[in-house]
């Protein structure tokens, strides 16, 4: 019974964060652009979330006649499922998680790799050249960044001596890992942006070149799933950053641990949005170059140095 409540609680938190992010992102962007943002529907424009959701549900759910229909319908679901599954292993508090897997990090990495299928299949099934190009870009980008996303976490794993998120959090009681693993943090954060293809790395969508990339042909709630999936991705990466590098639920005890976890997560979400507000989109080749020529060697170096230091300290 407890599991049901926990699962329900986590789903509720995660989905409402993802939905609320629509509003949060627009308001934050407008703050940074000296505007007001949505402020008409409900108090502070909070009703905008509801309005947008209703709109998404009631839009014509159109499947193009030239598309590969089953795949087309399936694709957005894959994205949602893989991300939501990952949240199962994320500890919201000391006792607030679905299950504490001893291969939590590998589970996350595996799921995020599966997420690529959603985008590749969606772009393929749309049977549209822009969608296909978007999908090809997404697959290349995500493959590239997944390589050192995993590698960048290995320093943390070595230091905590575990793949379990709970153990990793607990290992940070002496000090958050972002200080010793600063390079790992930076690499993981960048890889996380690329993995969720958020700005400035939204090259698969790149509306200036590809209309809307892989989801050009999507409408209604199918588009909504891609849309929410993206916010879920942000939330997930933010949650993982706070868990892996910023001590997860750890914090002064005058507030409950869940609050600290959510507070840290929210902070990184804001950083995601700030990135969008301030940085232009790089060229595709620049993105690949950054990945293979800088970040990959950097993460390998990090792995080497961390290993060496750990051995030395032992």
């Amino acid at each position: 019974m407890k599991y049901v409540f926990i699962i329900a609680g986590i789903l509720l938190i995660v989905l409402s964060i993802a939905a609320g992010l629509i509003w949060v992102e627009r308001r934050l962007l407008s703050v940074w652009q000296d505007r007001l943002g949505p402020n008409r529907v409900g108090p502070f424009g909070l009703g905008q979330v509801v309005a947008d959701t209703i709109k998404l549900f009631f839009k014509e759910d159109w499947v193009p006649p030239f598309s590969d229909r089953p795949v087309f319908v399936l694709a957005p679901g894959i994205l949602m499922i893989t991300i939501l599954l990952t949240f199962a292993v994320v500890p919201f508090g000391p006792d607030f998680y679905v299950f504490d897997s001893n291969i939590g990090i590998l589970f996350f990495l595996g799921n995020s790799s599966l997420g690529v299928y959603s985008i590749v299949l969606g772009g393929w099934a749309s049977n549209n050249k822009y969608s296909l190009i978007g999908a090809m870009r997404a697959s290349a980008q995500m493959l590239t960044y997944e390589v050192f996303m995993g590698l960048s976490l290995m320093g943390v794993v070595m230091m905590a001596d575990s793949f379990s998120f709970c153990k990793i959090v607990e290992a940070q009681k002496g000090g958050w890992f972002f200080i010793p693993q600063f390079i790992g943090f930076i690499v993981f954060f960048i890889a996380g942006i690329a993995e969720t293809h958020r700005l400035p790395f939204d090259i698969p969508e790149a509306e200036g070149e590809l209309i809307a990339g892989y989801h050009s042909e999507y409408s209604g709630m199918k588009f909504g799933m891609f849309f929410v999936g993206e916010y879920l991705g942000i939330t997930l990466i933010s949650a993982l950053v706070s868990t892996l590098f910023f001590g997860g639920w750890l914090g002064p005890s005058f507030l409950p641990p869940v609050f600290w976890f959510l507070f840290k997560t929210f902070f990184f979400i804001c950083v995601f949005i700030l990135l969008r507000a301030s940085l232009p989109r790089p060229r595709y080749d620049q993105l690949m170059e950054l990945g293979w020529k800088i970040l990959l060697p950097l993460s390998l170096l990090n792995l080497l140095v961390t290993g060496a230091i750990l051995i030395f300290l032992k």
């Binding site: 407008s30 940074w32 652009q33 000296d34 505007r35 007001l36 700030l274 990135l275 301030s278 940085l279």
Partner: peptide, 16 residues
Amino acid sequence: RSMWLTFLHVFHKTET
């Protein structure tokens, strides 16, 4: 720097 400058806009007057 550009992220910082963008962030500073929190303290600017809105034009709307």
